[in-house]
Each structure stands twice: as structure tokens, then as C-alpha cells.
Design a protein around this nucleic acid. Structure first.
Length: 640
RNA sequence: GCCCAUGUAGCUCAGUCGGUAGAGCACUUCCUUGGUAAGGAAGAGGUCACGGGUUCGAUUCCCGUCGUGGGCUCCA
């Protein structure tokens, strides 16, 4: 093009303006940039407010409360934190500091790791720097110059990052004396950062690789205003109160003891929930044509060698020997999955196409040697059961089976009130069996299945199982945290390794396909998620105690016992609280134990053979004749 | 497994600048027989996670082990 014209056309808010070339985005907005505008989009690309405009373009303001604006605020707050850290702890190197879902972090290589006590100091320095309202200035310079600059500053990690950047020109951001390599954009000055909070410290490997040095990470969050920050912190507090580990103890559902790390003890109440979930799945299995089996816990290692677990999954397995063992090598492995065992059931008979699809379900107990640092309540355990099943089918039946599974999954999640599920396809991991060709084909089949069923389909690279790609279903709980529960995995390897065959209608020998699937996932994790989703207020059909009869005085003890007995005889889990306590006390305890129905009986009720029924979290009570009470309970729906 | 923090009664937590510990709730007994979220009193309950070290003396300081919590990594 020829020599640049001195003026350019800039579209702002639907109006075109002539501006001199090199005018800043802020000038283009001309007063439309209120105090909550933190950046702009120039032809759709996010830029600093101070960005000079070099050609005809469209400029739109980005407000602090928009998702992009919020991300910019958080990113700038990460910089502010790094500046504070380096001024308080000279010699600390910076590495990276991205924004994350509800905040940001910055990883440092400090002289000593940070502790929680350091956070208030850092926060105070951040406040100072924000009050100083330092201008945030973008600098562009050649990559070589930047490398030299950071080398002189002693920032080895930044030099390493720069070495991996392909562009010749890089951007830096300066606020006060402090400077950092960054793509931007950022807020115009530190005074824009008004609402932030440092939330924790953690160790984190450089570039997420455990072979690299451990860095020291500080997490924080930031919002456009103090009000939004406060709301966020309140949500965190709410999440803390709903923590399933806390509720599990308070509601007497389960306990953990150091005697068996990562392995829950389900107490009588928790066991009711557990068993009701299994009963529910069994009803679905009947409808969807599954057969349940019980298989061994401990297998000779031969099975794990054949399945590939010995090669791919050994780190996660417990092994043992029996009394006759001679060498030091363990001869048996506890099953971490049910699939290899199920291949023996398949292979125990000569199979024909008429047997397929063969759907084999198993609630068997699994053990996995999870690393100690990963254990977390019920959501990450070493001993668990899954609503596991393996479908052996002909290749042409795969699509139909996956569809049926996705349908069953929807039934289940609807029953628990989980909405807005998210689905992904986990693709070939580094450690895998089989050829890449098959992997790519089966990955495509799963993607198509999701799309066909109107589900979203993100790719989760390298997250498949070692024997095949998988559909992962994530469910958000009431506090918008996402958990992976269901999975559908497509496997062409296991049938091959165990040499499974069937006779086709044409009389030929063919190889079946194996589909591994679970809907609740592990019962342990599901119960944990369900507790957090419901805050411990489980649906009636899962409630460990469905009705509690509260006696008002000794005079009605017998009648109270009778009411509870009648409810039990009608098939409900009911108990009578006959203790020598006031009614208010008993009501409080029943409320805290989340019992769905409280039947209060005093002398009036005894005389009328009725109860005064109080519903959990309902202040009002209602007088009901005994028959009507039982009728009401019977109408409490089971999930379809 | 790695980094940081942490471990005191069943639970939630005080406390001991080194001289072997305390509250509330829960539990037991007694009094109270009470109408919809805590009636009163008394009692019992702890090798201060475990193992070493320093010290006249360690629950307290140091080291290690185990557990737990927040992350990293891994995964249902």
C-alpha cells in the first residue's frame, strides 16, 4: 500500500469518526469510556485502552462486569500480586500467572515456599500498589532484547518462556518499577483493581510436570466490585458448609479412619443410601436388559498381563500372594476394574450373534492404589463400587448400545435433579493399547454418538482409558462445581487380547466389541456429589430415615411406638423418638438430621388416632389421621 | 508421590513463652412430662497422632513416620 493517510475511520457505537492515525482507543471512545471500562475490542480483538489505532477499525468498550473484562481484571490482579511479592521477597523469580475459572494464580520460584502467614502481608502491599494507581504501560520489543532484559533481571523462567515464543516481537507490561512479559491486555492503571482476595498457597510443578522443580503458587480472586467479591466469598462459605465430608459425619452416613486411608466405612444410615442406589440401578437394569453377575476380588496375575493392566495400570493396583507363595513376586492382584473378569464370563461359552448384545453388570468392589495426596473424602477413594457393566456386542450394534446408554443416563440424572450435563470425549492417552488407526476411528464414533444425541462434544486430549476412548459426562452440582460421573468407553483391545469371538449369522467367526459403561460412576463419588448437591437433604426414597415419630410425653409412648411400627410395616424407614426431652428439642434434632417427615404425637393425637405432621423445613404442621399419613407416604414417588 | 499447612475428649475448638490440660455439643444418671429448631443439675470421658532427639523435666522445641486439609500430578 501507499503512504499512510494521516487520518483513519473509527466506528464507535454505530457511528463513524475521523481520528488522526495513532489516536488511542480511549480517545476513540471519547468519554463513552466510563470508570467501569477496562479495555476495548478493536475489530473484535481485545486490546488495552491505551492502544494506538493504526488503521480503519471498529472499537467497542469492554466493561469490568463482562466475562472478558473480569478476566482482564483478574489477570491484572495477578500482575499486581507478582509485583507485591517481588517487592516483599527480593530474589523471588516469577513464572506464569494466568486467570482460572474463578480467579487467578501466579507461580513463583521463591527462596522459600510461601506460607499462609505471608498472604496478609502480600495483600496489604497489593492494596498499597493499587492505591498508588500506577499506570500500566505496554512495551513492545524484539524477542532477543526481551531475552537479554530478563536474563539481566535473573528471571530464568521468563527466559525459558521467551525461548519458546515463535514471534520476533513480544510485549511487556510495566507498572511502576515492575515489568513482566505478557500478552495482555491489562487495565490502564492499578487503581482499577479494587476488589481482590488471596485465597491460598500451593505447590505446583513448573509446567505441570512432576519431573520439574516445585514452584510456589498463590491463588487469589478478583472482581469488578466489592459486592461481587463478597458474594463469591459467601458462595465459598456455603460450599464449605455443604462439604460432603462434614455432612457425612454430621448425618452419620460414613466415616474415615487412618486404619484404612481412602476407604470409607459406610455407617448404617449411609448404607441405606448406598443400597437404595443399587436397588434403583437394578430396576433400570431389568428395563434395559442387563444381567448382573458377581465376580472374584483377587485374580492370578495372568489375567492382568493379558488385559494389559499389568503393563498400563500396575501403579494403581494392589498385589498379594497366598501362603504357598515361594518367590518375592506377588502372584495375585486385587481387581481395579471388572472388565477382565467379565471377559471370562463371556468366554465361558461358545457365543453366537444371537447372544449379543450381552450386557453384564457388576457392583463388585474395586481397589485402586491412588497416590496418598489425591485422596479426598468420598470423591476420591481407594476402595469403591461402580454401577459398572460391560456390553459385548457386534460392531454394528455399537451405535444403538451407546444411544440406549445415553438415554438411561438421562433418566438417572433427571431423577436426581442434575441438569446441564457436559460431555467430552477423552482421546488416546500416552500409555495405550492398540493402533492409532483404531483409536481415531473409535474416537470419531463417540463424537458422533454425542452429537446424534444432542449433547455437547468437547475433546479431552489424551484422557481416554488405556484400552479405548471414552465419553465422559460431567455433572454440575448445586454450587456449580463439575464432577465426572458417567463414562462410556469403547474397547476393541480387550476382546482381542482375551481372544473373544462369536459366530455370525453367516457362520463365520467374528470379534465382538466391548463397551465399558457406568452411569453413577462410583457409588462413593456419586453419594459424595449427591450430598453436596442436596446439602444432605436427600430425596424421600433415599432418606436413611423417612419418618420420625416424636412423642410429647411419657403418656403417649406406646402410641408413638405403634405409629412408627405401622409405618415400618407399610415399608418405610421409621423410628420413634421417645426420649425424655421437650418437643422443641426433638424437632430440632430431626431437622438437623434431615428427616423428611416428623410425626408429632401427643394426647390429642392419641385420642384421635392421628398425627401432627411436620415436613422437613416447613414450619407449619398438619393434622392427619393415621391412614392418611400412610397414604401420603405411599404417594412419595420413587424415581421412574 | 511432591509442596505448604495441620493433628489436644466422639465432634468443633481453646490452652500450655517447657513443669503431664480446658470449653461447648454429644454421652451416662437424676430432676423436669414439656405442643413444633436447644429445660435444669451432676457425672464420666484425654499416653495432647505415633517414634526418636534435646532437656532435670516434652503435649509444648527439633527430626522422622502416619493421617488429614489446600494444591500439583492422577482419575470414577
Amino acid at each position: 500500500m501507499g503512504s499512510a493517510a494521516p487520518e483513519i475511520d473509527v466506528m464507535v457505537g454505530g457511528q463513524s469518526r475521523r481520528l488522526r492515525r495513532g489516536a488511542t482507543a480511549r480517545e476513540a471512545l471519547d468519554g463513552q469510556a466510563g470508570p467501569d471500562v477496562v479495555a476495548v475490542r478493536v475489530n473484535g480483538r481485545l486490546c488495552d485502552l491505551g492502544r494506538p489505532l493504526e488503521e480503519d477499525c471498529r472499537v467497542e468498550p469492554v466493561s469490568a462486569s463482562s466475562p472478558e473484562g473480569l478476566a482482564i481484571i483478574r489477570h491484572s490482579t495477578a500482575h499486581l500480586m507478582a509485583q507485591a511479592v517481588q517487592s516483599l521477597f527480593p530474589g523471588t523469580q516469577v513464572t506464569i500467572g494466568p486467570t482460572i475459572e474463578d480467579g487467578f494464580y501466579y507461580d513463583f520460584a521463591p527462596a522459600r515456599p510461601f506460607t499462609p502467614e505471608d498472604l496478609p502481608r502480600i495483600e496489604a502491599r497489593m492494596e498499597e500498589l493499587a492505591r498508588a494507581n500506577l499506570a500500566v504501560e505496554r512495551i513492545e520489543e524484539p524477542r532477543a532484547a526481551a531475552i537479554e532484559r530478563f536474563r539481566r533481571m535473573g528471571e530464568a523462567y521468563k527466559v525459558e518462556i521467551l525461548a519458546g515464543i515463535p514471534e520476533d516481537q513480544v510485549s511487556l507490561y510495566r507498572q511502576g518499577e515492575w515489568i513482566d512479559l505478557c500478552r495482555g491486555p491489562h487495565v490502564p492503571s492499578t487503581g482499577y483493581l479494587k476488589a481482590f482476595k488471596l485465597t491460598g498457597t500451593a505447590g505446583a510443578y513448573w509446567r505441570g510436570d512432576e519431573r520439574n522443580p516445585m514452584l510456589s503458587r498463590i491463588y487469589g480472586t478478583a472482581f469488578a466490585g466489592r459486592e461481587a467479591l463478597k458474594e463469591h466469598l459467601e458462595l465459598l462459605e456455603l460450599a464449605r458448609q455443604r462439604d460432603h465430608r462434614r455432612l457425612g459425619r454430621e448425618l452419620n452416613l460414613f466415616l474415615f479412619d487412618p486404619i484404612a486411608p481412602g476407604s470409607p466405612f459406610f455407617l448404617p444410615r449411609g448404607t441405606v443410601v448406598y443400597n437404595e442406589l443399587v436397588a434403583y440401578m437394578r430396576r433400570l437394569y431389568k428395563r434395559y436388559g442387563y444381567q448382573e453377575v458377581i465376580t472374584p476380588q483377587l485374580f492370578r496375575n495372568e489375567i492382568w498381563r493379558t488385559s494389559g493392566h499389568w503393563e498400563m495400570f500396575r501403579d494403581n493396583m494392589y498385589a498379594t500372594s497366598d501362603a504357598e507363595a515361594h518367590g518375592p513376586e506377588p502372584e495375585y492382584g486385587f481387581k481395579p476394574m471388572n472388565c477382565p473378569g467379565h471377559t471370562y464370563i463371556y468366554g465361558a461359552e461358545k457365543r453366537s450373534y444371537r447372544d449379543l448384545p450381552l450386557r453384564v453388570a457388576d457392583f463388585g468392589r474395586l481397589h485402586r492404589a491412588e497416590r496418598s495426596g489425591t485422596l479426598h473424602g468420598l470423591t476420591r477413594v481407594r476402595a469403591m463400587s461402580q454401577d459398572d457393566a460391560h456390553i459385548f456386542c457386534a460392531p454394528e450394534q455399537v451405535a444403538g448400545e451407546i444411544d440406549a446408554n445415553l438415554k438411561m443416563m438421562r433418566d438417572v440424572y433427571q431423577a436426581f435433579g442434575f441438569e446441564h450435563i457436559e460431555s467430552k470425549v477423552g482421546t488416546m492417552p500416552e500409555k495405550h493399547l492398540g493402533g492409532e488407526q483404531t483409536w481415531r476411528e473409535t474416537e470419531a464414533m463417540l463424537e458422533q454418538a454425542l452429537l446424534r444425541n444432542g449433547l455437547s462434544c468437547e475433546i479431552n486430549p489424551g484422557e481416554g482409558a488405556f484400552y479405548g476412548p471414552k465419553i465422559e459426562i460431567y455433572v454440575p452440582d448445586a454450587l456449580k462445581r463439575r464432577w465426572q460421573l458417567a463414562t462410556i468407553q469403547l474397547d476393541y483391545n480387550m476382546p482381542e487380547r482375551f481372544n473373544l469371538t462369536y459366530t455370525t449369522s453367516a457362520g463365520a467367526e467374528a470379534r465382538p466389541v466391548m463397551i465399558h459403561r457406568a452411569i453413577l460412576g462410583s457409588l462413593e463419588r456419586f453419594i459424595g456429589v449427591l450430598i453436596e448437591h442436596t446439602g444432605g437433604v436427600l430425596p424421600f426414597w433415599l432418606a436413611p430415615e423417612q419418618v420420625r415419630v416424636l412423642s410429647l410425653s411419657e403418656k403417649v409412648e406406646q402410641y408413638a411406638s405403634e405409629v412408627a411400627r405401622l409405618a415400618r410395616q407399610a415399608g418405610f424407614r421409621a423410628a420413634a423418638d421417645l426420649r425424655n426431652e421437650k418437643l422443641g428439642f426433638k424437632v430440632r434434632e430431626a431437622e438437623l438430621s434431615k428427616v423428611p417427615y416428623m410425626a408429632v404425637v401427643g394426647e390429642r393425637e392419641m385420642a384421635a388416632r392421628s398425627v401432627s405432621l411436620r415436613v422437613l423445613r416447613g414450619a407449619k404442621s398438619q393434622n392427619l389421621a393415621l391412614e392418611n399419613l400412610l397414604e401420603l407416604l405411599k404417594n412419595e414417588a420413587l424415581p421412574s
